[in-house]
Design a protein around this nucleic acid. Structure first.
Lengths: 125, 125
DNA sequence: CCTGTATTTCGACAATCGTTGAAATATGGA
DNA sequence: TCCATATTTCAACGATTGTCGAAATACAGG
């Protein structure tokens, strides 16, 4: 993941309305929600929401698909993990005190251990 | 982690200079780097850097400690993992397709499996 | 106490951001 | 075709942000 793209994604999420939209859509993954329902759920004006959605799509965090008269928005499943991996990129390879809590939280949250715990190897390998 | 604090941290990282500072300090964890050296390493004006550092500290991402004439900045190790856990919060508990890649990346990056893979339980438990 | 170094604070400025109202576009149905 | 609904686009605005120069503060050493 490029640095510019990380900035775009962080900045897209760094706004109350957009973060609320993103979290709503994460909860609605993978079906997604039409724009109008998002606006109703969060109490946002349709045109305001539209620009926020455009920013999230531009950042690669959401996908959109027209379905008849509505446009349904959904999270791009890889987007968040790409961003997180980018943020973790520098702290590892011999310095696990930052990443290990994340790993454990991810294990706890994902609610299933990884298919197979892989051998210890540095990031550069 | 509160939503406002997540916004503060995302917004603190969503700026090229500050993201560069943070990543530099992650690499320098846990010793940290004096403000002047950060400015030199990244080519930033001292007063500009000072305001960026203040924003990162205010967001809880960095700590600062005076050492004689210099002020040394270092990452707060929990800050990033708290933010990441917050971002993952909604997607789990039955919906692991987003968190599992993060979990695997964290395992790869932390370069050591967790001390003990814990039993599968939902986030709400 | 005085000087030099390190860092922050202040005030100003251009640039960017988020919201709003009005108008435009796209779609489905009568 | 005409109409109603859903969503976007546009222009404008106040608010916030990032950077700069200059001045202020904090500290160590002589």
């Amino acid at each position: 993941m490029e640095s510019s793209s990380a900035i775009d994604r962080l900045s897209a999420l760094a706004q109350p309305g957009r973060l609320a939209v993103f979290r709503l859509l994460v909860r609605a993954d993978p079906e997604g929600i039409p724009a109008g329902e998002i606006a109703a759920a969060l109490g946002l004006a349709p045109n305001t929401l539209s620009s926020q959605l455009a920013i999230l799509v531009q950042a690669g965090l959401l996908s959109s698909a027209r379905e008849g008269r509505v446009i349904r928005y959904a999270v791009r499943p890889d987007a968040l993990s790409e961003l997180i991996v980018y943020l973790m990129e520098d702290c590892c390879g011999g310095r696990p005190e930052i990443c290990q809590p994340v790993q454990e939280a991810a294990a706890r949250a994902a609610c299933c251990p990884p298919s197979r715990t892989r051998a210890c190897r540095p990031l550069s390998a």
